[in-house]
């Protein structure tokens, strides 16, 4: 999902691509094993589905400005080459949940408004009686905070093991 959002910046479209790719991948479950590297193959399925969806979206001209093709390529290559172990990914996921639970209520509310409701900065600022720029800065700080918190928890866990 992260990869899809990185190249589409559209949560709904990312979700749609993800589900379509999941259908393709799931169709292979139980079939004779002709795929040698399942992980790489699944990534390629996701990438192709994403590129197809992006082209369709561009045709429909629904988005104001798409991610540049150059950045999409670079991100796609990084995603394809990413060898992060699933154990590490799982640990990151658990750490994020811990970090979210540790957020003060106001920051947690901000995250929920942005990611759960998909609210714009304008909309959030209206709800919280602030300005769009202030909301954007606050969200940036929360992202950094969460990312730093995750890294810290992972370091602690690594040192303890």
């Amino acid at each position: 999902m992260g990869y899809l959002y990185a190249i589409t910046r559209d949560a709904d479209l990312s979700e749609e691509i993800y589900q379509n790719a999941a259908v393709v991948v799931m169709e292979q479950v139980g079939k004779p094993g002709t795929i040698r590297d399942f992980r790489a193959w699944a990534k390629e399925v996701v990438r192709r589905q994403a590129f197809h969806a992006i082209r369709e979206r561009e045709k429909a001209s629904k988005l104001t400005r798409a991610v540049s093709p150059e950045l999409i390529d670079v991100v796609s290559i990084a995603f394809a080459e990413d060898q992060t172990e699933s154990v590490a990914v799982t640990s990151e996921s658990a750490a994020l949940k811990d970090c979210l639970n540790g957020l003060p209520t106001d920051k947690r509310t901000l995250v929920a408004l942005r990611y759960e409701s998909g609210a714009s900065f304008d909309s959030i600022s209206n709800q919280l009686n602030s300005t769009p720029a202030a909301i954007q800065r606050a969200l940036s700080r929360v992202r950094k905070l969460l990312h730093g918190c995750i890294q810290k928890k992972l370091r602690i866990a690594e040192e303890a093991s």
């Binding site: 999902m1 992260g2 990869y3 899809l4 959002y5 990185a6 949560a11 990312s14 979700e15 991100v75 990084a78 995603f79 990413d82 992060t84 990914v89 990151e92 996921s93 994020l96 979210l100 209520t105 947690r108 509310t109 995250v111 929920a112 942005r114 990611y115 759960e116 409701s117 998909g118 992202r143 969460l146 990312h147 995750i150 890294q151």
Partner: peptide
């Protein structure tokens, strides 16, 4: 970038599933 990307993906997923509100 990749670690931020994974975090963004998870946040969107949690948000989609309604698990981000403090009371959730």
């Amino acid at each position: 970038f990749l670690s931020y990307m994974r975090m963004e993906g998870r946040l969107h997923s949690l948000g989609h599933d309604g698990f981000l509100s403090a009371d959730d």
